[in-house]
Design a protein around this nucleic acid. Structure first.
Lengths: 189, 189
DNA sequence: CGAATTGTTGATTGACGAGTCAATTAACCA
DNA sequence: TGGTTAATTGACTCGTCAATCAACAATTCG
């Protein structure tokens, strides 16, 4: 039944677009269903409730991100280049689209109270750290763990700041800043 | 009319506690009013609507933070010590209390759509940057601007990660990480 | 004191939304 | 073809909540 998969993926896409348009999780399942060209009942049929629908959408963002990272790593050789590739992906345009930004921000809110959201967030944190760590190790040795945490934190922080800064048009300055931080981490004695 | 000021501040405190307890902005004005020992109508009387009440609560967090920074700066001499003082304040225990974390996260969400929230956030960003910049200038010279942006971003990012990490008990590791980043920024040629 | 002003209440309204479910339609298959 | 199952609908229920407002209490002051 490719039908079910299609419908689910339509609903997930509609969820992201609707949340992106309104900025908040306060959108009705009816609005989402309408955007997906489907009846409200179907969304409940496939996802159970609104939170599960949103978490499915968030999971799709996270796996998409993971896929992009893996893809980028294929084309990069050398530790330094691999780290740069990951950072490039982290600030790719697609993550600054309205749906993605709104999803992330609301995901943070939900992570305070939903065990499943908390779980997903922890996985993301760990994976991102260890991806960086893997290639920092040969470059930074014993200081790699701490450096990876700092870079990861910086990525999240700059993402927040740039995503919410309406005056900023593209993410190039954010990328430049993380790259500079990487330089500094690596050149430090 | 000390009465009005008292009531407003009770309502603001109740707002933060209620939001902290629920994690979300989805709390009723009635619940907030009850916590403040007051009728729902009074909250509307004083603040107009729910969003204005929340923004007033957020403003109180921001001015509190500002006050703490100013206070900490009084007791610190030397650029380096002043920066460290600011960073210490940024990760003070009070900012990790439930109400504060929930307020910040929901504030980010609101900043996407509310002009007033956006405005407050921009002011916070600018102020924090320029506070850091002031004392980085003599230490980092021409690289101070970029360094200030990076430190500010790192603070936000680490705050996010630590505030949402249920396994982390205190903020000492976060502080250590920012301090380390500061060291690295300053030691870099 | 009593009138005027200010502060406060809480019942009420009107709108809305999550989730259900009985009914309908499409897809499949023998 | 008809009969069976799966997909899909959308009207409906039941609860909820922001915001209002008419009434009531407290305070101030002449």
């Amino acid at each position: 039944m490719g039908k079910e998969i299609q419908r689910k993926s339509d609903l997930i896409a509609a969820t992201l677009r609707e949340i992106g348009a309104k900025g908040t999780l306060n959108v009705t399942v009816g609005q989402i269903a309408k955007r997906a060209g489907v009846s409200p009942g179907l969304a409940f049929h496939y996802f159970g409730d609104k939170e599960k629908l949103f978490l499915a959408a968030m999971r799709s963002i996270l796996t998409g991100f993971r896929r992009e990272v893996v893809e980028a790593l294929k084309g990069a050789s050398g530790s330094r280049a691999r780290i740069e590739a990951v950072l490039q992906v982290s600030f790719a345009k697609s993550h600054f689209e309205e749906g993605a930004v709104a999803a992330w921000l609301n995901f943070y809110v939900l992570a305070q109270t939903s065990a499943e959201a908390q779980r997903l967030l922890t996985i993301y944190h760990r994976r991102f750290n260890s991806t960086l760590l893997h290639d920092l190790r040969p470059l930074a040795g014993a200081r790699a763990e701490a450096a990876a945490e700092r870079i990861a934190g910086l990525v999240d922080g700059l993402y927040l700041r740039f995503a919410l800064d309406r005056t900023s048009v593209d993410s190039a300055p954010a990328i430049a800043q993380v790259m500079a931080a990487l330089d500094i981490e690596l050149s430090a004695k």
